[in-house]
Design a protein around this nucleic acid. Structure first.
Lengths: 213, 213
DNA sequence: GGCAAATGTCAACCGCTGTTGACTGTAGAA
DNA sequence: TTCTACAGTCAACAGCGGTTGACATTTGCC
């Protein structure tokens, strides 16, 4: 978010792919921080060390750029891999503390999810991505009954937490003990990760036999 | 979202307060559905049966209008009142089925929460509202340790669900059995509503004694 | 070296949208 | 009836922001 032509771009020889990814990365930052509407094409371009016209050259339009940013940003595989028993804790910890290595970028995907939700055009794109990529992957990792539905509920839970904790930041959450947050969030997630709600009297007969992975 | 001057407004005699609330209600719908950026002043005004200039007359600016919409839309008291034992189930049911009486408006507040999160100016307003109104009310209803934090986590959980289930709507959630959704969501909420996560080995010594109601 | 495609800049355009000020018509009091 | 304050319209303004096409510069191939 330097708002001035990045030094890296200054002495970069003409290289279309490098420029493309530079724009892509700048756009990711701007979209995540400011949202689609408030991120100007000129700003993004300048941050990438290029003119705004390049956005249209490489991505057709600002909307096309946004689409590629969304497309590129979602890969939750690395988060999911690992010991399944500690999955809830790892996810919770990631949301509260952010990704260990990359300082801030670990939080970006879910913020983009939020931004995309606001943008009708991107919402469609995002739905496809979730339906055919992220949720199935997570669902497979979860296993058990109704894995797809449970995957959706988990992503929903994480998204909601990200919004309140990272964007709105009311005192009640911002000032809370972080380990306590991890514990509580993790506990909430665990219920959905480990299958529970079946043996429970429901108003409607439970035999709907929907699997929808 | 009629996009043509509402009939109600057509034969409405000159009445400033009626017009004011008409604008307010139209704006609530538009902001919730399309977001702040994509909701045009002319659209909103036409939906209210008035000219765009009226928005500036009554609310100063579009942003002022948005502020009042946010201010007005948040009153969760009625949701919270009632048997505490069934609170989780009632909340979950509300999110899945919408508010019984009003067909669609029951879902609007949380969508507005999302919209407001995207708008930096509104985010401040929203934080204040949450901090000093909604979260304390819910916290008092919850009782027990860390009530404020738990209230925040619950609102976060509900918000996330609203976004995925009402806006993104991936198959895995949209096609799921609704009673199953209620059951699972309710189960996830219940963990936070009924205090659990304290007797649990934590990496950090648990005695932080933060109450933050 | 020279030519052509690729890479990038620049300035202008244009549509959209919030806003404003002058104007019109209606309602109610004198 | 007439006058005034108020409710509302209308047209024009202004500026932001995405987009475009004409122009400059570099790169790489013959």
């Amino acid at each position: 978010m330097t708002s001035e032509r990045s030094e890296a771009a200054a002495h970069r020889r003409r290289d279309s792919t490098a420029t493309r990814t530079a724009i892509l990365e700048a756009a990711t930052r701007h979209f995540a921080c400011k949202g689609y509407g408030h991120a100007g094409a000129r700003e993004i371009a300048m941050d990438a060390g290029v003119t705004a016209a390049m956005i249209n050259r490489y991505f057709g339009s600002k909307e096309g750029l946004f689409a590629e940013v969304i497309e590129r940003a979602f890969d939750i595989r690395e988060l999911i891999d690992g010991d399944r028993a500690t999955l809830a804790d790892r996810l919770a910890r990631l949301m509260v503390y952010g990704r260990p290595g990359a300082p801030e970028s670990g939080r970006i995907p879910l913020l983009l999810l939020l931004r995309a939700a606001t943008e009708p055009a991107a919402a469609d794109l995002l739905r496809d991505r979730l339906e055919s990529e992220n949720l199935p992957v997570l669902a497979e990792r979860l296993g058990g009954p109704d894995a797809g539905t449970r995957a959706g509920l988990i992503i929903a839970h994480l998204t909601g937490f990200a919004i309140l904790y990272q964007m709105i930041r009311p005192r009640q959450l911002a000032d809370a003990d972080r380990e306590q947050l991890v514990a509580r969030l993790s506990a909430g997630l665990a219920v959905t990760i480990d299958e529970p709600p079946d043996p429970q009297p429901r108003p409607t007969p439970p035999k709907s036999s929907q699997k929808n992975l």
